[in-house]
Amino acid sequence: MNKYWFMVLLAGLVEIIWVVGLKHADSVATWGVTVIAIIASFYFLLTAMAHLPSSTVYAMFTGIGTVGTVLTEIFIFNEPAHAIKLVLLGTLVIGIIGLHRVTGEVA
């Protein structure tokens, strides 16, 4: 994995923080963390997009964020984990991995 694909992964992981923050922030400190996470996430995303195919990067970014956010809501905030939800998340993960494999190491 080159540094730009790592930035996509990092952008997606940081996206989880700000998406959860948008729902659960309730103080100046938690809103501050949310805003910093938004800025960091988009910095990593835009840097990666400058060197990799933007369609694949964006799909991976949103996919990582979606899977991570749903799992965070399930494991930390006790959202229900319906079987179909987990099957669909698995399908999304397979799609993310597939997109990365067919795109290859462009940069």
Rank of each mutant, 00 (worst) to 15 (best):
M1G: 00
M1Q: 00
M1C: 00
Y4D: 02
Y4C: 01
Y4F: 03
Y4T: 00
F6S: 01
M7Y: 05
M7A: 01
L9G: 09
L10D: 02
G12D: 14
L13E: 12
L13K: 04
L13R: 04
V14H: 02
V14R: 02
E15P: 12
E15G: 15
I16D: 13
I16W: 14
I17G: 03
I17R: 04
I17E: 02
W18A: 14
D26V: 05
D26L: 07
S27Q: 06
V28Q: 12
T30N: 07
T30S: 13
T30W: 12
T30Q: 09
W31A: 12
W31Y: 14
G32S: 05
G32N: 01
V33D: 08
V33H: 07
V33S: 06
V33W: 11
V35P: 05
V35D: 06
V35K: 00
I36V: 14
I36E: 05
A37F: 15
I38L: 14
I39S: 06
S41A: 14
S41E: 15
S41Y: 15
S41N: 11
Y43C: 09
F44E: 03
F44K: 01
L45R: 04
L46F: 15
T47K: 12
T47L: 10
A48P: 06
M49Q: 12
A50W: 05
H51G: 15
H51F: 15
L52N: 10
L52Q: 10
L52D: 11
S55F: 07
V57T: 04
V57W: 06
Y58R: 12
M60N: 10
M60F: 14
F61M: 07
T62P: 09
T62G: 14
G63C: 05
G65K: 08
G65F: 06
T66F: 11
V67Y: 10
G68T: 03
V70F: 00
V70Q: 00
V70W: 02
T72I: 01
T72M: 05
E73D: 08
E73W: 10
I74H: 02
I74A: 04
F75T: 00
I76G: 10
F77P: 01
F77S: 02
F77A: 03
N78A: 13
N78I: 06
N78M: 08
E79F: 13
E79H: 11
A81G: 02
H82G: 04
A83L: 14
I84G: 09
K85N: 10
K85A: 09
K85Q: 11
L86Q: 04
V87R: 07
V87K: 06
L88K: 07
L88P: 03
L88V: 06
L89S: 07
G90S: 05
I94F: 08
I96L: 14
I96R: 03
I97A: 10
L99W: 02
L99T: 03
R101P: 05
V102H: 15
G104L: 12
